[in-house]
Design a protein around this nucleic acid. Sequence first.
DNA 1: AGAGAAATGTCAGCTACATTGCAGTTCCTA
DNA 2: TAGGAACTGCAATGTAGCTGACATTTCTCT
Lengths: 225, 225
Amino acid sequence: MYEDLKYWYLRDHKLFRTLSFGQIKQLCIIMGFKKAQKGEIIYFSASDVPRIFLLKKGNIKIVAVDEDGNETIKDIIQKGDLFGELTLEVDSQANEYAKVLSDDVAICSFLLSDFEDVLLKNPSLALSYTKFVGLKMKRIKNSYSNLISKDSKTRLSLFLKAWGETEGIRTENKIVIENYLTQNDIAQIICTSRQTATQLLNEMVANGIIGYNRKEIIINDVCSF
Amino acid sequence: MYEDLKYWYLRDHKLFRTLSFGQIKQLCIIMGFKKAQKGEIIYFSASDVPRIFLLKKGNIKIVAVDEDGNETIKDIIQKGDLFGELTLEVDSQANEYAKVLSDDVAICSFLLSDFEDVLLKNPSLALSYTKFVGLKMKRIKNSYSNLISKDSKTRLSLFLKAWGETEGIRTENKIVIENYLTQNDIAQIICTSRQTATQLLNEMVANGIIGYNRKEIIINDVCSF
DNA sequence: AGAGAAATGTCAGCTACATTGCAGTTCCTA
DNA sequence: TAGGAACTGCAATGTAGCTGACATTTCTCT
């Protein structure tokens, strides 16, 4: 792939916008590229060398497998998000992989060690990156406290609202979301059983709050949400 | 207070160990100092200028108040821990304060803006700091997944185990922990009601797994824990 | 087109835990 | 050293949401 294209892939990301042309060049040299199809599984933890990934196109979910073999969704990664060893520290215990949700995805990556070098040479990038990790932490803390204090119905509403804000397309008073998640996925994200999620979704449809099918979710009244 | 003493307060912390004498000097100049007694409340979010704090002595809990006035424990800070605007970003919504748990505490602090300057001049510190924030994030993620998958009994066990490991004094096959938390505090930390926590603790005492009173908690059999 | 695999819908029964309410203890402080 | 506040202990009752079992619909792949 052309250096120029790589350049723009990084340049797009707000994290790297502070960098000069030369600095981005440096990152580009160490950047890898990959495409994958729906359903494909990308192993990244403990697989080979630690990397940081940038999702250029599509959606993936990060799934963790515990000792009993149960799968839990850790994160949903959208276009433009970073994932992988974001903490700059490998943890050997974490048994995680990424599964492609959308039809096809494009992923860039660089080695953790290379990225560290760049950070050392660019203190302002290092600072932005720290804030970026901090932001991630705040998001996690937030969903954590939702989990404690809100019931499953509220959690579903909050999730749909957040999803609509990041990815939904707004028309008039409605938000249309491309639905690449199954009800089981949604259930795992809001930490409830599949059955409960199904029930709550149907309830919301019956109440006219949302429209739902396998392709898209429509939030009807944005204001009341 | 003497510059020398300040120097050692920072020098003790592993985060700052990579810094040269001169660099630590720089941080010392901007460092404030404070003492407080049991029960005292230290406001830090939204109070005045954003700061980062270092707890030198004692224990505090970070408490958040939501819109309904309910208090929830966000974190327990132990000697040597950092707290405050760790993400280097002020969030105005967060309504948090710190309450002193131990008899007395000593707290150092520096302004967020000053700390950013130091980070910009010391890329390797910036890198360590990012890893430090990342570690915090991992801990949060971990308790998050405990909350989902484990029942309250297991959560209590895990909490006591972790507490014993960080602060307990090991003698023979037992671990003695200085108990500065009420049952209500413990309940909030493991996200359950006070009654359930009481019940579980008494159950564990009855089974001989732990010894419990208001002053100390003793974990009897380290191995089986 | 048709079989098999996912995904979705529905229901009864159960369980862990919250809630409420009160009584007994320990601690603080005036 | 008494009296109130905070903490701890116990029991009865209520319920959100999980489990499991099954039917139905929709997708996917020869």
